[in-house]
């Protein structure tokens, strides 16, 4: 095996293994984090880092072909829509009255939109 191919092989191994690791970490975070607001951050680890690294690894594996073009289109689409969807979920939660908890040592900022709504209760749990 010549040197450039070996380098590409090593790089794609590295990025795919790191991306897989980040995806599992985001799954663990989804389970470990205590409330909805922190879980959005755990989900965004897989949405940004894991997704970018896995797609980069697949691009390196397929070389300069149409497959790479499709993967890049897919990556750009996911980069744009992932944060938009996360923002939409968080915004919907805020609009219906769910407030994030502020850490004990911090002063909550005044004037949060929709803060006059009552805090909803969890139903059926």
């Amino acid at each position: 095996m010549d040197i450039p191919a070996l380098i590409i092989e090593i790089l794609s191994w590295a990025s795919i293994v790191t991306g897989s690791f980040l995806m599992v970490v985001s799954g663990i975070g989804m389970l470990r984090f205590p409330d909805f607001w922190s879980r959005t951050h755990a989900a965004s680890v897989g949405d940004s880092g894991g997704m970018i690294l896995l797609i980069l690894g697949m691009c390196l594996q397929s070389g300069l072909t149409l497959i790479t073009v499709k993967l890049i289109i897919m990556g750009i689409f996911l980069i744009i829509t992932g944060p938009t969807a996360t923002h939409a979920v968080a915004n919907a939660a805020l609009v219906t009255g769910w407030r994030p908890k502020t850490a004990e040592d911090l002063e909550p900022v005044k004037g949060v939109p929709y803060s006059d709504l009552p805090e909803p209760t969890v139903r059926g749990e």
């Binding site: 980069i79 944060p83 968080a90």
Partner: peptide, 11 residues
């Protein structure tokens, strides 16, 4: 802001 994990634009 949302793409970088750890911060999310809420409103």
């Amino acid at each position: 802001i949302t793409l970088t994990p750890g911060t999310i634009t809420v409103e």
